Amino acid sequence: MSDEVILDRVGSAAVIRLNRPKALNSLNLPMVRAIREAMEQYLDDASIKAVILTGEGERGLCAGGDIRVLYDMGKARDPEATRFWREEFPLNYAISHYPKPYVVLMDGITMGGGVGLSAHGRHRIVTERTRLAMPETGIGYFPDVGATWLLPQAPGEVGTWMGLTGIEVDAAGAIYAGLADVLVPSDQLDALVEAIGALAGEAEDGNVEATIARFTLPPGESALEKNRSVIDRCFGFDRVEDILEALADEGGEFAATTRDTMLKRSPTSLMLTLRLLRAGRQSSGLVECLEREFSAGVEILRNHDFYEGVRAAIIDKDRNPQWSPASLDEVQAESIDAYLGGKHGSLFPDHRL
């Protein structure tokens, strides 16, 4: 078991602690394997009534996958570069169908792969410190870990806004978007874990939910809810160019900030993300979306923008990526089709869509 994942017990609750606080608990392959192995073992342990996932340190649950490793392996054309997704995506699916109560504490930064570990779960708790986002278009990638299934289920076009812009939302926004359930103050999390652990033989989902409810506070109105009409007017189009034009015509600070943010993102990633989100809206379920995301991810590693985005964000840290193609009108529709070809094998060969 990796020391980057700590396995703990609090009464009848098993607690999985992500333990890379200096890296904002970013996920790597050994961590994915450790989480999956632990969750499988807990299914056979009758003394464990609930599973709780949390992150060590005070900065966040998980900032996402360790993209530096993907960058290095992809650059080296390592055939194992896709192994992380091959094991992470099935873990996301396993979380969505986990039979025992699964409680996740989304305290602080919860982004990318951290959303995959949390938003598919049964009991999703945010705090006043939560900062949730799918920021992938800013590094030449796209929202994955099943986000193309989750985001289209958000109210109106809220999920489209989140996926294209990558802008973070707070606790109220996460709840409004359907990616979290309740707000619990961060100083009450330890007491909540103790209370869940104390349920002993009664830790069924209904009892866990009632226990959590004792600690919750109203989240208040989110910026997403407040700007919902603008989001719906501008993000209902199936072309990124039309969305940007609508934002320009809309006026107001929210629309202007949204548009300025999108113009800094990878044009290819914007077009690919919109295609994936629209496909997700018509999909049969999470597995279909994960399969599509995997296919797109394999192609991402063969193209320029991911490497340039990671370089600008975490290697040189100049925050000045030079995208190629550099503008939306230079991105060919056929190039986006290539990401969706589905010719990279199946992650779920025995699953019926």
Rank of each mutant, 00 (worst) to 15 (best):
V5P: 04
V5T: 09
V10K: 12
A13M: 00
A14H: 12
R17Q: 11
N19Q: 10
P21Y: 09
A23F: 11
L24G: 04
L24N: 10
L24D: 10
N25E: 09
N25T: 01
S26L: 12
L29I: 02
I35H: 08
R36T: 14
Y42V: 02
L43P: 10
D44C: 04
L53P: 02
G55E: 00
E56G: 15
G57V: 05
D66C: 09
R68Q: 14
Y71H: 15
A76I: 01
D78S: 02
T82D: 15
E87Y: 09
F89K: 05
P90E: 03
Y93A: 14
I95L: 13
S96A: 13
L105V: 08
D107L: 00
G113Q: 06
G114T: 04
G114H: 05
V115M: 12
G116S: 12
L117C: 06
A119K: 07
A119M: 05
A119W: 03
R122V: 01
I125L: 02
T127D: 01
R129E: 12
T130G: 08
T130V: 01
E136Y: 03
I139W: 04
F142L: 07
G146P: 08
L151S: 08
A154H: 08
V158F: 07
T160D: 10
W161M: 10
G163C: 05
G163I: 01
T165Y: 00
T165N: 01
G166T: 00
V169W: 04
D170A: 11
A177T: 09
A177V: 03
V182L: 08
L183R: 11
L183I: 00
S186W: 07
D187F: 11
D187H: 13
L189K: 05
A191C: 01
L192H: 03
A195G: 07
A198H: 05
L199Q: 07
G201H: 11
A203I: 01
A203Q: 03
A203D: 02
E204F: 07
N207R: 11
E209L: 04
A213L: 06
F215R: 10
T216W: 05
R228H: 15
I231V: 11
C234L: 08
F235K: 10
F235E: 08
R239H: 13
D242N: 13
L244A: 08
L244T: 08
E245I: 00
L247F: 06
D249H: 13
G252A: 03
F254Y: 15
T257H: 14
D260Y: 04
D260V: 03
M262C: 07
L263K: 13
K264F: 00
R265P: 01
S269K: 02
L272A: 06
G285Q: 11
L286H: 10
C289N: 13
R292Y: 01
A296C: 09
G297D: 13
L301F: 13
L301E: 04
D305Y: 03
D305G: 02
F306A: 02
Y307I: 00
V310E: 07
R311M: 12
A312D: 06
A312Q: 07
S324Y: 14
A326I: 04
S327H: 12
E330P: 07
E330T: 12
V331H: 06
E334I: 05
G342R: 11
S346T: 10
S346Y: 14
R352L: 14
